[in-house]
């Protein structure tokens, strides 16, 4: 089975490094990185990944805007996009889901459980319409 390609869009070097280490050492993923929203959007357009991990607050284009723009691109419309953000307030979560996120994870996060979480999302499939409610 080929490895799943993850695109991590985060302006924090530490976070990208932690995510890369956690996912690569798991063995089921390859990781691409982008340091801001524009770079992430470009990378996703050029080579659509299997799943995106997206920071909320970034200089320039923030995560919510990146999410909306990706959804507007047909090739990325059904791509699993997971927020991974320090924006933990209820309205921020709703804003993320409204922007078209598949799931919303908050920081700090446990890198040890991240790989299993992504696999679960990928196995659920990219069919947004049939996304089961966790609530």
């Amino acid at each position: 089975m080929s490895k799943a390609r993850v695109l991590v869009i985060d302006d924090e070097d530490d976070v990208r490094m932690i995510v890369r280490f956690a996912l690569e050492s798991d063995g089921r993923f390859t990781v691409d990185e982008a340091r801001d929203g524009m770079e992430g959007l470009r990378a996703a357009r050029e080579r659509p990944p299997d799943v995106v991990l997206l920071d909320g607050m970034m200089p320039g284009l923030d995560g919510y805007a990146v999410c909306r723009r990706m959804r507007a691109i047909p090739a990325l419309a059904k791509l699993p996009i997971l927020f991974l953000t320090a924006k933990t307030q209820g309205y921020e979560r709703r804003e993320g889901m409204a922007a078209g996120a598949t799931d919303y994870l908050t920081k700090p996060f446990d890198p040890i459980g991240l790989a299993d979480r992504l696999i679960a999302i990928l196995e659920r499939g990219p069919r947004l319409e049939a996304r089961p409610s966790l609530d």
Binding site: E12, D14, V15, I18, F21, A22, M57, A86, K87, T88, K107, P108, F109, D110, P111, I112
Partner: peptide, 18 residues
């Protein structure tokens, strides 16, 4: 403050867990 604290805590916690 919450956001500013979360950022270093994320690195710290992530690094320690790894």
């Amino acid at each position: 403050v919450s956001h500013e604290l979360r950022t270093p805590l994320t690195s710290l916690h992530g690094a320690l867990r790894i």
